[in-house]
Structures are given as C-alpha cells and as structure tokens.
Simulated assay, not measured.
Amino acid sequence: MKKRIIIIGVIVLLIAAIGIKLAANKKNIDDKKKPTLTSNVSIPVNTVIVGLLDANNQLVKTGNLVPFKEADIMAISSGKLVSVNFNLGSMVSQGGVVAQVDNRMLQLNLEQARLAKDKSDKDYKRYKTLLEGEAATEVNYQDAKLNSENAGNQIELLQKQMADNNIKSPVSGQVVSKVKEAGEFVNPGTVLGHVVDISQLKVNVLVGEKDAYTLQTGQKVTVTTDIYPDVKFEGKITFISGQGDATHNYQVEILLQNNGQHKLKAGTFVYADFARESQQKLMLIPRSSLVESLKNPFVYVIENGKAVVRKISVGREFGDQIEVLSGLQEKDQVITAGQVNIKEGSLVKGIVAK
C-alpha cells in the first residue's frame, strides 16, 4: 500500500513538471510572436531640385568614326568555291573578282548550247530558203526561227550564270572579315567577307533642336581625337536630319578625308567641334548623385518622403556636373549625398542645397 502511494506521488510530480515546462515554452513562443517595435525615423540626406540650366559651353559633340562605305562580299549563285582570292587586310577594288564558284558544269552546258544554236541557225536559214521557193510551210519556218532564238537565249542565260559565279567586291577598300575558304559550298546570299572603305570617314552625332536650326550642310567642323591630341582634322556637315527623335535631338553627319599623314581608323572615338556657342538648356545634376558608374547610371529621388530608384541616361560632363538626357523631370528632388545609408523605399528627409 505504501509502495503504491509512492508511485502515485512520483507520477503526479512528473505530470506537474511537464505542465510547468509546457507553460514556460508557450510563454517563450508568445513572446517571440509579439511584433518588434521599430521607430519610423527619416534618414537625413542632401538633395538638389532638378531644373534646366543655361550651359555656357562650346557646341562640341562626341561620336565614333564610321567607314564612308562598307559592304559584305556575297555569293549570288550556288556551288562549291574553287578559289577565294583575298585575306584579312587585303585591299580590293569595286567590281574586282575576289572569289570563284565552280563553273565546269555550266561550261559543258554552254558548249552544248552553242552546238544547238549552230544547228538551229542552219535549220532557220534552210527553211527560210525553202519558204521563199514555196517548198516549206510558214509553220515550219516560224518553228525554225523560234528554235534559233531560244538557243541564243539559252547561251545568254548560261553566260549570265557563269558571270554570277565570279564573286566581285561591291566596294573598294580593305577586307576586315573573312568567313569562307576554297572548297566550301555557298548559296545565294552567303557572306564570304566584309569590306570597309576608310579613304573617307563619317561621324554621326545628335544635336539639340535649337542647335539643329543654326547648322548648315557644307559647314566646316573641327574633329579631334585623343589618339592624336595635337592634330585637328577638318570635316564638313553633309547631312542634317529633317526629323528629330522623341527627345528633340537631330542627327548630323560629318564627313572628313582620311588621306593625310595621320591615318584614322573606323570606330575611333572623336570630338566634333562646331566652333560656336550652344544655345541649348541642359539638365545637369551633381556627379555625386550617381549611385553606380556611368555604365549603369541611376539615382535616388524623393517621392512622398521615401527614396525611389530612377534609371537615367547621361551625356557630357561639365566639371563636377553631369548632363541628364532622360530619366528625370524638372522639379524632381535628387539625393546627392547619403545614398550609402538608404535603399529603395527608405524613409528620408531631404536637405536642399542652397
């Protein structure tokens, strides 16, 4: 009896201990579920208000040199290449034969066509004589005449096909790409290589609306490059677009000769100086506003007390200022300092620079 009472007491103690442990665990879980109290503190940041400013600068635009002419060397018939007469760097002339497609089958067909032409010509003359002597019908004569003409057309067709097998360069210049070798099969439109003519070079730039109305074709432009820092190249305006893009910029093409002592190459970065003051208003922001590099430019603007990311497109740099081509509007409040402490959606308090 006494032993039974002891066992019951031990069981009761175990149950009590389990109950206490469960209660403690429940309290810990409830404590974890309670929301953490956070303070809605706005982070102070320096800002500027975006606007259009008069930029007192020369009208200088940047661009890359492009070839005066460039074209693909292209096959216009199908067959196996028996020769490719150019290599990378080769100088070729417009209309010069630079590759040859196999002509042997066409040559055999041409010989056969010439034999057929000789026979049809003889038949035509014979039937013409017979018709004059009323020994042949008009139908026989007309058939012989038609056969003679068809044989002549067949010869012209084969000669045209053989001429097409002579692959010619569409422009004069230097071969900068070669993608086919002798022995390979080609079809009409197959590209064998690429030729560029850099005896003259072009620069395509965009100018603002007001500037576009002050420029004229034939106007001289000074072109410079960092490759030859002390050399100035003379160009002239050959084209001004009559239609602007969505941002009211107009394409201007400048042509310059490339036959002097200092040879230029297509793709070179250049500056085009129009030798006059620009009348364009520019949207400028401090260089420090950019969160990342110029390759991936974006800034933070303040909207309803929060930091919002804005992707932008940038142009020229003017000291510690940089031109914004798109992505911002007038009166936007752009953060210029303190970006390291914020992210998208952070509460901020803008301090406008005076």
Results as ranks from 00 to 15, higher is better:
Ala272Arg: 07
Gly193Ala: 01
Gly19Ala: 10
Ser93Cys: 11
Lys232Glu: 07
Gln251Pro: 05
Lys125Asn: 15
Ala113Glu: 02
Gly242Arg: 11
Glu317Pro: 10
Ile302Ala: 08
Val179Ala: 01
Lys33Glu: 03
Glu184Cys: 03
Thr247Ile: 10
Val191Ile: 14
Asn204Trp: 08
Lys122His: 11
Val97His: 08
Val309Lys: 15
Val314Trp: 05
Pro297Val: 07
Ile18Thr: 13
Leu131Ile: 06
Leu22Gln: 13
Gly51Gln: 12
Lys145Thr: 03
Ala17Pro: 09
Asn150Gly: 06
Leu81Met: 01
Ile302Gln: 13
Ile342Phe: 05
Gly242His: 05
Thr238His: 12
Ile8Tyr: 03
Val60Trp: 00
Glu134Cys: 04
Thr225Trp: 01
Asp164Leu: 10
Val196Asn: 04
Gly319Thr: 12
Ala23Asn: 12
Asp118Ala: 09
Leu256Thr: 06
Asn296Met: 09
Lys168Ser: 12
Leu108Ser: 14
Ile198Met: 01
Ala151Thr: 03
Ala136Gly: 00
Asp211Met: 02
Gly9Val: 13
Thr217Asp: 05
Ala212Asp: 12
Ser326Asn: 09
Asn187Lys: 15
Val348His: 00
Asn258Lys: 07
Val301Asp: 05
Ser241Leu: 09
Val176Ala: 01
Ala16Trp: 05
Leu37Ala: 08
Ala75Ile: 00
Lys3Asp: 11
Val196Ser: 02
Ile342Glu: 08
Ile43Ala: 06
Thr36Lys: 15
Gln174Cys: 10
Leu158Tyr: 02
Lys33Asn: 15
Ser313Val: 14
Asn296Thr: 14
Val252Met: 01
Asn57Lys: 10
Gly315Phe: 04
Ala272Ile: 08
Lys295Gly: 12
Glu317Ser: 14
Leu206Lys: 13
Glu149Thr: 07
Arg126Asn: 07
Leu157Phe: 04
Gly96Arg: 04
Arg114Tyr: 09
Glu111Met: 07
Pro35Ile: 05
Arg287Pro: 13
Asp121Tyr: 03
Ser199Tyr: 02
Asn258Val: 11
Leu325Cys: 11
Ile15Val: 14
Gly63Val: 05
Glu344Trp: 00
Ser289Pro: 08
Asn56Arg: 12
Leu53Trp: 00
Lys265His: 13
Val231Gln: 07
Thr268Glu: 04
Gly95Phe: 02
Val84Ser: 01
